[in-house]
Write a protein that binds this DNA or RNA. Sequence first.
DNA 1: CATGCTTACGGATCACGTAACCATG
DNA 2: CATGGTTACGTGATCCGTAAGCATG
Lengths: 88, 88
Amino acid sequence: MSLAQIESFVTVAETGNVSRAAERLRIAQPALSRQIRSLEDELGAPLFARTSRGMRLLEAGERFLQHARQILAAVAAAKCAVSERPSA
Amino acid sequence: MSLAQIESFVTVAETGNVSRAAERLRIAQPALSRQIRSLEDELGAPLFARTSRGMRLLEAGERFLQHARQILAAVAAAKCAVSERPSA
DNA sequence: CATGCTTACGGATCACGTAACCATG
DNA sequence: CATGGTTACGTGATCCGTAAGCATG
């Protein structure tokens, strides 16, 4: 599991659409599709249902989404923490 | 920034020693040294002071460490969340 | 000269983008 | 046939381990 995969997952969850998410992330659609697939493989369970109109979050995906957002927030905070002035 | 880098950082911080941390992580010492270096490069600031006896956390490193542990904990929680039973 | 971090280098793996493919409405 | 996800494939980048280098006490 990589941070890129986690960010990809959140973006697909928010757009409900791999194509649009790929635009937002500035990567090609197949690359994003692969990232989602490999994330699901690693977790051992699908996170999305593939419908004819896009990607719909499953329950496992909803649960994962909450933690995914926490992870990204913690990463952002970690980056900020390094550049804080020492006295803070 | 990758999760592997974050785990590497925490292990080096805990051991104060790249060599010992590499053993614990089951990777070669130069690989670990590179991960730490590239993490510092990306963050734009050193996290450790290189002493003749090993690695000592700097203030920026101490601040980063707290968030790094949060990130790893959130990742572990995310993995668990996927396999929880749906009713939970 | 023992300990410990870093740099050089070659090779394997990974991850991307383009192109082709398949399914649905 | 338009939309949207997946598979195939070749290539460029990444990352590892071994080996050599460098600093310190």
